[in-house]
Amino acid sequence: MTVGILVVSHSAAIAEGTVALARQMAADVPLVAAGGTDDGGIGTSFEAITEGIGELAGADAVVVLCDLGSAYLTVDTALDFLDDDARGRVHVSSAPVVEGTIAAAVAAQTGGDADAVLAAAATAATSGADAGSASSPVLGDQTAEAASDAPAGDRPGGAVPVDGTADGDDAVASATVELVNESGLHARPAAEFVKAAAKHEARVSVNGVDAKSLLAIMALALPKGASVTIDATGPDARDAVDTLVSLVRSGFGE
């Protein structure tokens, strides 16, 4: 499923800048900016919003993010002029426009449907700690305890395996590695981390927050040299941990 994102702002610079930022982390997601008035002033444009929705007609669904209350009113007016089928494809999020757009774009990049993209955007309204618990479950208490009590292993890079069920829904795995890239776990590496985690069925956490929540990971603000503990539970837990460990060790290609 393809989900397009329309960014509506009273400022053309804000809308275009937000789209440019999101594209750095979600290059394959259709993103359109609809900012400012038709004469280049501050405000919103019915025509620009309508055209933006039209530009995203090839997507299966469209998620709209707005900056201020009157932007929502203009979007509502534009939606009233659409036919029923087109209107049914459009979903309006109340998330903060910049953080919400970035989280939504990463969710769309990983193949999320409209509900998943809206849920990802909604995490922008919470703190980093809350975002980790507000989305998908991370690890149960038993798994987290097993991870913290596990003895250090001999795997290179500080990977620490956790004893547990080898297969099935109760399989567990854990490893701790050091961030080697100069900028640490900032926006782009965090997005790469989320996209890699989202490919696995296992529930995954990084330093105690949901590894599939971009904003939760970014809120950790981990610098170069910081320890990254990855815990997973589920049928592909070991593969999830190994994949993410390799990604961290690679420096995210930076």
Rank of each mutant, 00 (worst) to 15 (best):
A175H: 03
D149V: 00
V64L: 11
P30S: 14
L185K: 08
H91I: 03
S9N: 15
G253Q: 11
V245G: 10
A129I: 05
A86W: 01
T126Q: 11
A240S: 05
H10F: 13
D76M: 08
R188F: 02
V228K: 11
T165K: 14
D163R: 13
F252L: 09
A120V: 03
D170G: 00
V97M: 14
L31S: 02
A104F: 10
G54Y: 13
L79S: 00
G54L: 03
P151Q: 07
I53K: 02
A221G: 13
E16N: 14
A134Q: 13
D83Y: 04
E16K: 14
H200Y: 09
V8Y: 05
A71E: 03
A108N: 07
A122R: 14
A197I: 06
A150P: 06
V206A: 10
H10D: 09
R203L: 13
T2S: 15
T233Y: 00
T74E: 14
S133D: 01
R249P: 01
K212N: 13
G100P: 05
D210C: 14
T50V: 02
T18G: 07
V206E: 02
E51S: 09
A198W: 04
R155H: 13
V209R: 05
G112D: 09
L6P: 03
K195T: 14
L73W: 08
A107D: 11
S70V: 15
P235K: 12
V228S: 08
A108I: 07
V106K: 08
A13G: 11
V177Q: 10
D38A: 11
L222A: 10
R249C: 04
V19C: 04
G41Q: 05
A152I: 05
I230R: 04
P189F: 04
F81G: 06
A59C: 05
S135Y: 09
V106S: 10
D115W: 00
D113Q: 06
D76L: 03
L6Q: 10
G164A: 02
A12C: 07
H10S: 12
A191F: 04
D39K: 04
S9Q: 12
V75I: 11
F193A: 06
T143P: 00
L6Y: 11
A211H: 02
D60K: 02
V180A: 06
D169N: 08
V8D: 15
A12Q: 15
A48N: 05
A187D: 04
D115K: 11
A196W: 02
E16A: 15
V106Y: 07
G140Y: 01
G111Q: 03
T110V: 14
P223A: 08
P161I: 09
D149I: 00
V248Q: 12
A12P: 12
A134F: 15
A211L: 07
G234I: 08
T229M: 14
I53C: 10
R155A: 13
S70F: 13
I14K: 12
A120C: 09
A104R: 09
S174K: 00
P161C: 07
T101E: 04
T50S: 13
P137Q: 02
G253F: 06
D210R: 15
G157D: 04
V204K: 10
